[in-house]
Amino acid sequence: MCSNTPSGSAKGTVLIENDKTRVTEWRFFKRGDNTGWHRHEYDYVVVPLFDGTLEIDNGNGERVRAPMQNGVPYFRELGVEHDVMNGNTFECAFIEIEFLNR
């Protein structure tokens, strides 16, 4: 996922890892659970497994609310720095697919 080891309360489970791709499920058990501050070392795609909201701290003092739709992916380039938080009153998860440059 990143150049820093996340220290948040969300649970990351690596489902697939090979020399081209790493697929991780990130699970947030309650509102406010987070990934921890991190920087992405690879381009990646996120596929939400829920309808709801994530809150993103980009380090500028504000939290951005990002609406998610189950199964609708989005792409980000390497270098993104943030902390991702569950903005819902229910458990939620997403799949993160990293394109490894090994």
Rank of each mutant, 00 (worst) to 15 (best):
G59Q: 12
G8Q: 01
T24M: 13
A93Y: 05
M85G: 03
W37V: 12
M85P: 01
T89R: 11
S7I: 06
Y44T: 13
R27F: 08
G8E: 02
N88Y: 05
P73G: 08
P67N: 01
T13C: 00
Q69I: 07
C2N: 11
R31A: 14
I16Y: 04
M68L: 13
D19S: 14
N58F: 11
H40R: 08
M68W: 09
Y44V: 11
F94M: 06
F99N: 01
L49P: 04
V47I: 15
W26A: 01
S3D: 10
R76V: 14
G79L: 07
D51W: 14
L15R: 00
R39C: 11
D83V: 08
Y44N: 13
A66P: 00
R65A: 08
I95A: 02
G36N: 04
K30M: 03
E62R: 08
I97N: 06
T53E: 04
K20I: 09
V84R: 02
P6M: 15
E91Q: 00
E62H: 08
W37Y: 13
L49Y: 03
E77L: 13
V47E: 07
C92L: 12
E77M: 12
E41Q: 12
R39G: 05
R63I: 11
P73V: 04
F50H: 12
N101E: 12
L49S: 05
R65F: 02
G59T: 15
V84E: 13
R65K: 15
H38L: 11
W37D: 15
N58A: 10
D83A: 14
G61H: 04
V47K: 08
R22D: 00
F90D: 07
V80I: 14
I16S: 00
Y42E: 07
F99I: 03
E41L: 15
T13F: 03
Q69G: 02
Y42F: 13
R65L: 03
E25M: 12
R39K: 02
T21K: 09
V47F: 07
D33K: 10
F75P: 00
H40G: 03
L78H: 11
N58G: 08
A66F: 09
R22V: 07
Y42R: 06
F75N: 00
G32S: 03
N58M: 11
I97T: 13
R102D: 07
G71K: 06
N86H: 09
T24K: 11
V45M: 14
N70G: 03
N18P: 13
N18A: 06
H40N: 14
T21H: 12
K30C: 00
R31L: 05
K30Q: 08
T53D: 06
P48S: 09
V23Y: 04
N34C: 05
R63W: 06
E77W: 07
F28H: 01
V72Y: 10
F99R: 01
K30A: 03
T35L: 06
H38F: 02
I97G: 00
V72I: 11
N18V: 12
R65N: 07
M1D: 03
G71L: 02
R63C: 10
C2A: 14
N4G: 01
C2G: 11
G87F: 02
F29V: 06
N60W: 01
T24C: 11
K30L: 06
